[in-house]
């Protein structure tokens, strides 16, 4: 293990170093104005990146801490007592479980992975994964704060539940969760030395939960960072105003809002305030599709999903919500113009 890592390190550094030299050579050929332009861009990039990152940190910590607590305080027997094994019932209870866990889309991934590890059925876990970022109390309150206790909130919650349950039930056709889930590599080995978690004192459990929190934070933080870099990069170099002017007409406006939800990669706990800015420019159905799809799929969450599920499953987790959000957005655009 150790020799492999040290052997691979230098080779891994060759490409970045070559790239750096290439950039230097290329840079010497650029016109004068390029550097001020580039520096300006880099500043914008840094501000946007740190914006996403700073805002997501508390929520990621909350999710990973929840995951740590589950690891230490929930055992497998309890889990099977709580959650039914029948697919429909499991999917529905999984979706409603979101109401008791205040996690958004960054935090929900490590937590779901941990719950799977504790024996949560696949369909329940999938519907939890998709529903929790919208159904959690913080998001409901922030949506209400932005839109009032009104139809937007009802539709958002209802449609998210529907999508989560449908997707969860589709996944129940695969009885062997082991085929779909990747193993958790970041299990603290200390646990294997102690004799089960039953004999631990409360403080030992808290300490264990905090260690799991750190491991999950580093594990998932990696994908949060990659996602934020991508999102900030896209925002620095791709014009949003072009996107927004394209977004007219009942079909295109929904597509553009879905695309924007993925590109912006903002946390579900705050996206309602952002969506508020689109009301007036965009129809009810389009804004709703932004609010429903954004928490389920964006750049950083897809990167995180890839650590938990195999590629084929991630494909379904992305496309099923996409199709349903798109269809409902279109339908609502015609029904409630």
């Amino acid at each position: 293990m150790q020799t492999m890592a040290t052997d691979r390190l230098p080779r891994r550094f060759i490409i970045p170093v070559l790239l750096f030299v290439l950039i230097l050579v290329a840079a010497s050929m650029f016109p004068d104005g390029f550097f001020t332009w580039f520096w300006d861009r880099l500043n914008v990039f840094a501000t946007i990146f740190l914006g996403i990152f700073v805002e997501a940190i508390p929520y990621l910590l909350l999710g990973t801490f929840a995951s740590g607590l589950v690891e230490e305080f929930v055992d497998r027997d309890q889990m099977s007592r709580w959650i039914s094994r029948r697919p429909a019932a499991a999917a529905i209870s999984g979706a409603f479980m979101g109401m008791i866990f205040p996690v958004c889309e960054c935090g929900v991934v490590p937590l779901t992975r941990r719950l799977f590890h504790k024996g949560l059925p696949l369909s329940a876990g999938i519907s939890f994964l998709l529903a929790a970022p919208v159904l959690n109390p913080i998001v409901i309150i922030s949506t209400a704060a932005a839109f009032g206790w009104d139809r937007m909130l009802l539709w958002r919650v209802g449609l998210s539940l529907l999508i989560a349950i449908i997707t969860g039930m589709i996944f129940s056709v695969e009885p062997n969760a082991g085929k779909i889930l990747k193993p958790i590599i970041s299990l603290p080995t200390e646990h294997d030395h102690s004799h089960g978690s039953i004999h631990k004192t409360f403080m030992e459990k808290v300490r264990g939960a905090l260690l799991v929190t750190v491991d999950e934070f580093f594990d998932m933080g990696r994908y949060l960072i990659m996602g934020s870099v991508l999102a900030a990069g896209l925002q620095t170099f791709v014009s949003q105003s072009v996107l927004l002017t394209l977004g007219s007409g009942p079909v295109f406006s929904v597509l553009i809002m879905l695309l924007l939800a993925v590109l912006l990669s903002i946390c579900s706990t705050v996206d309602a305030f952002v969506a508020l800015g689109f009301v007036g420019t965009f129809s009810f159905g389009s804004v709703l599709s932004f609010l429903v799809f954004g928490p389920m799929v964006d750049i950083k969450s897809v990167l995180m999903y890839l650590q938990v599920f195999n590629k084929k499953s991630v494909f379904y987790i992305v496309t099923i919500p996409f199709m349903i959000s798109l269809l409902s957005g279109l339908l609502l655009n015609y029904l409630l113009p």
């Binding site: 861009r41 990146f49 933080g221 990659m226 620095t236």
Partner: peptide, 25 residues
């Protein structure tokens, strides 16, 4: 990966968004 935000935060001077962001935003 955790070094990336620190590097970006330390190496690139902090500045609020300004007109350079008008092109894309």
């Amino acid at each position: 990966f955790m070094i990336i935000p620190l590097l970006i935060g330390v190496l690139i001077p902090a500045r609020p968004l300004n007109s350079s962001a008008f092109d894309t935003k």
